[in-house]
Write a protein that binds this DNA or RNA. Structure first.
Length: 330
DNA sequence: AAGCCGGGGCT
DNA sequence: AGCCCAGGCTT
């Protein structure tokens, strides 16, 4: 299937009341969710950021690359890396052919470089199993390496207009506040939260799913720009008057809901990151590489263990005493 | 269900 | 200097 233009979200009209065909006797909660739909989608058309992967001429591959990068990294850091990636490898075919070392170098410091590897593996799978075209269904997307429940739904929806229920942590947080009245959604994605997301989802039949897709992106943007985790800007929120959390007087998060801080200094992740940063500069002698990391404490056991894990992950290669990004050494 | 996996910007 | 962040995969 060819990649469709993606201007449908911006063409959705708001304010029509015939959108909910099945509503014979509207319950109070359905009425609430409908009011939230209208306010959120209307706000999105006014306030959304102009991001390159949202433009109508962006390919489905561009959407998949952006969603993969955005899984762990803020928009501001993704933007230049996405532009460079798409300039060099604008299709799955070209991505699949690229040298692994270049893939990892362009990924740069986006973090979790195993995802760059999986993105290239996904490109290869698309070439092999889907004739080079990004598949458009949730199940086909879900089968690709590195594509989980969120990314599969997001690409189906944002690249192809399929009205799948998209749930990321921004969306979970907005749902929890607006509809459940809690400050934060908690650490794990529960079956109850999945049910809530489906319960408040607009009728996917209406409008060929355009409005449902607009709802997904609108709630995600609302969570990113206004209904943020730490300092929500309720004064700028289009659904403030409807928000259950606000009407309940902003009850604070329970201990269970508070996020657990992740240690950084001294962790394997920091050491692996420093090793990858050094390897991106070029091949090195193993002992020199290990000794030259710009890290305070020198735990040689940990450094060797982390390098071994990079070799195991396919993020680095060793020949003799030389270490480099994959494919660099003969 | 819980832990691992980067890195940088904000307070 | 500390705090915060987020999806996929493995166990």
């Amino acid at each position: 299937m060819s990649q469709k233009p993606r201007d449908r979200l911006s063409r959705v009209k708001t304010g029509a009341s015939s959108r909910y065909s099945g509503a014979i006797e509207e319950s109070e909660s359905l009425r609430l969710s409908q009011a939230v739909h209208e306010a959120a989608v209307s706000w999105y058309h006014r306030a959304a950021r102009d991001l390159p992967w949202r433009r109508q001429d962006c390919s489905a591959w561009g959407v998949l690359v952006s969603e993969t990068m955005l899984q762990q990294t803020p928009v501001a850091r993704v933007l230049p890396r996405w532009e460079e990636w798409m300039r060099r490898w604008p299709t799955p075919h070209e991505t699949a052919k690229a040298p692994v070392a270049e893939i990892l170098t362009v990924w740069d410091r986006l973090g979790y470089p195993r995802r760059a590897l999986r993105l290239q593996q996904t490109a290869a799978a698309i070439v092999e199993h889907h004739d080079g075209q990004v598949p458009s269904t949730r199940d086909e997307l879900r089968a690709l390496p590195g594509v989980g429940e969120y990314t599969a739904a997001a690409v189906a929806c944002f690249a192809f207009g399929v009205p799948e229920v998209v749930v990321d942590t921004n969306i979970r947080r907005v749902h929890t506040r607006v509809f459940s009245g809690h400050a934060l959604p908690g650490k794990t994605y529960t079956a109850q939260q999945r049910r809530l997301a489906h319960d408040v989802f607009p009728d996917p039949e209406h409008d060929c799913g355009q409005f449902a897709c607009a709802w997904n992106i609108a709630v995600m943007e609302l969570g990113a720009l206004v209904c943020t985790a730490r300092a929500p800007q309720c004064g700028a929120c289009p659904v403030a008057e409807l928000c259950t959390w606000r009407r309940a007087g902003f009850p604070p998060p329970t201990e269970e809901q508070k996020p657990r801080g992740q240690a950084w200094a001294g962790t394997d992740r920091q050491v692996r990151g420093a090793l990858m940063a050094a390897l991106r500069c070029g091949p090195a002698q193993r002992s020199v590489l290990i000794a030259s990391l710009p890290l305070p404490a020198a735990d040689l056991d940990q450094r060797h263990r982390c390098l071994e894990s990079l070799l195991t992950d396919g993020l680095a290669e060793q020949r003799g005493d030389q270490v480099a990004l994959p494919g660099v050494l003969r």
